[in-house]
Nucleic acid binder design. Sequence first.
DNA 1: GATGGTATAATCAAACTTGACTAGTCAGGC
DNA 2: GCCTGACTAGTCAAGTTTGATTATACCATC
Lengths: 208, 208
Amino acid sequence: MDRRILLLGLLRMQEMHGYQLNDFIDRRLDFVTDLKKPTAYYILDKLCKDGYVREATEQAGNRPERKVYYITPEGEECFQTLLRQNLATFEQAYYADDLGLVFMHSLAPQEVRTALEKKVVQIKREIAQLEELPAHNGPNDPVRLVLKHKIAHLQVDLEWINSLSRMLADRETWDDEPTNGTIDECLQVGDISNYQVKEFVQSYTRNK
Amino acid sequence: MDRRILLLGLLRMQEMHGYQLNDFIDRRLDFVTDLKKPTAYYILDKLCKDGYVREATEQAGNRPERKVYYITPEGEECFQTLLRQNLATFEQAYYADDLGLVFMHSLAPQEVRTALEKKVVQIKREIAQLEELPAHNGPNDPVRLVLKHKIAHLQVDLEWINSLSRMLADRETWDDEPTNGTIDECLQVGDISNYQVKEFVQSYTRNK
DNA sequence: GATGGTATAATCAAACTTGACTAGTCAGGC
DNA sequence: GCCTGACTAGTCAAGTTTGATTATACCATC
């Protein structure tokens, strides 16, 4: 996830100092990325070293001095390359929330269900907030398009959790599931290492 | 994204050595997480230090010795806490692919379209691969449920890109868009810092 | 004119992540 | 009997990320 594209893309529009960049990302691009301030400064430094960005110190009023970042021609070229690459290749996304669900069977079905209810509330709130975000430049504002993408994902999340909830609703235990410890089953059946299988087979034949 | 839950959850089912853990994650949980080997070992070490996991060295055949990890009662408790928390709270997901689209206007519409076509091919291939994954334990195998979740997201991605493509199809330039540089517009209109606004107002009034 | 709160601007140490590497084992071909 | 390639098992240095902190400026109000 190359976040240089974000910084270069913004500096391309307008030279900025670090605070300004971070402030803009926090306020407007909050839902696209989780780039934190120190990381942004780190990446800016790297961009400077690579010659993609130039920095100049500036004094405004009697404020402490600050660094203003400008994109260079090489930076512009780098941005174009990164952008083409970003548009043309699919990058996997991972969902931290799904990690827990893999181990759902460790808790009683009803407890899973009540926990998921809480998550649902938060997702709904999130969707509502995203839908309220102002449109700056008509319906084809790219930021707005990305926003719609995100909302669509969240709606899938809601539907998915709801269907899961229905499955859990009339269930007190996991007893009727084919395997109680699914992962366990996998491990024991299909996922012993080649080496261990062979070792086992050998010891088995020897004992015969 | 607390990946301890993953390691504890697996060790809970069966004690394992590091290679076994990593191998299982690589083969079966590949689509849920991108946990890499050295990170897994790092986290295992930390879990040991915190007393959630115990390690013992073991010798199998005349293989080099290896460390076997067992979950402790404290580890089990930690796992339960993490799991409850994971199920009950919504964790934001971010899409690296959306980062580029924010800057779509930097490239000609037709170029954006052809780039996105390539991404579409990759997403379709990814969906096909995920759909082929074997079902181990009936339709309610949690891993399978998570898989479905992921596929649903990918299908949303496809639809979304397609609708974007249709918008791009009959367009040679961005000229008819309300603003050429959307971000720029945002920056200049609404996103100057409080301090800068005040500074500007002050200098303006002084000059009067 | 002291005080507390927010905004501005950035840095640092500590934690986390990863690509590249080490080092031994085993099976099969020649 | 030796070589190659794949498997087993893990480590390390270098790179990345972040929570906490520093430090000054401005403003309200007491």
